[in-house]
């Protein structure tokens, strides 16, 4: 295991652990306001300080991690759930009308500026975490469809697939029993990358007020709230941003590390 995989996995584990822990315990109450103790810099009572309502920032970060992870995870789930079967189907009938429709549809989604459409969807259907998930998830579908199709196409030319066809298995069975397991590594790596992009997208959407709604804490909205306080108390802006950076960095490192670990041949090609 490489250093980047270890470091990435450790960073990710810290945030996932904090999010899980927040279900049971947080250092402070994320909804309890304490105006007298607002905008406190990090100190003994509040390890990461307090925000403009006097809420404990560490506690808000922990609960906010829950929102970020949930949104990004479900969005990856949507992308894989729809994209992988589409990619498998397209590869199984390469050049057919289904392949053509799926690939053209993919091109079309890629042509839309994802952020604009995410904003459009959340604005039209109302800002909420669920709509943010859908908006981010839709753009994950073509990513997984294309990746799966590409990987599956090269697998279909292999001898063991020919053997399966000779044995009389249907295209669907071959796709599920032989193609899918062999693309799993690629999908895991891409899933990690899309996960980190999802975290960034969720932060962006909730920063402009289109993600999770108050009182649910979210990292993006903590930054939006902090914007006017930045001169008075820089820590309210710096700390949530650092959390996003570390989480995304952790996921990216883990993705890179996983790719090298799962497919050592790639590493030789790349370096």
């Amino acid at each position: 295991m490489s250093r980047s995989l270890t470091l990435g996995a450790a960073l990710t584990a810290v945030f996932v652990g904090a999010a899980l822990l927040s279900f049971l315990w947080t250092p402070g109450d994320v909804q309890a306001m304490d105006i007298a103790g607002r905008l406190q810099p990090p100190n003994g009572d509040n390890l990461l300080g307090t925000d403009h309502f006097g809420r404990d920032i560490l506690s808000m970060l922990m609960v906010g991690a829950r929102t970020s992870i949930a949104v990004a995870l479900v969005a990856v789930g949507i992308g894989m759930g729809a994209g992988v079967p589409l990619g498998l189907a397209a590869a199984a009938r390469k050049g057919g009308w289904l392949d053509e429709i799926i690939m053209r549809g993919n091109d079309l989604i890629f042509a839309f500026p994802s952020l604009v459409i995410a904003i459009l969807i959340t604005a039209v259907f109302g800002p909420s975490a669920v709509n943010a998930i859908i908006a981010i998830g839709i753009f994950n579908i073509p990513v997984f469809a294309r990746l799966t199709r590409g990987a599956a196409l090269s697998l279909w030319t292999r001898d063991f697939i020919l053997a399966a066809r000779v044995a009389g298995k249907s295209a669907t069975r071959i796709s599920v029993e032989h193609i899918l397991p062999n693309t799993a590594n690629l999908l895991i790596v891409q899933g990690t990358i899309q996960f980190s992009l999802g975290i960034l997208a969720e932060a962006g959407l909730s920063y402009v007020g289109l993600g999770a709604q108050p009182p649910t804490p979210s990292w993006g909205r903590m930054l939006a709230d902090a914007q006017t306080m930045v001169a008075l108390a820089p820590h309210v802006a710096v700390i949530p941003g650092l959390a996003i950076v570390l989480m995304v960095l952790g996921l990216n490192l883990m993705g890179d590390g996983l790719r090298d670990w799962l497919d050592p041949r790639l590493k030789e090609i790349r370096t």
Partner: peptide
């Protein structure tokens, strides 16, 4: 660079 949200 890729991990930093540009608005932050």
């Amino acid at each position: 660079g890729v991990a930093v949200p540009n608005f932050w």
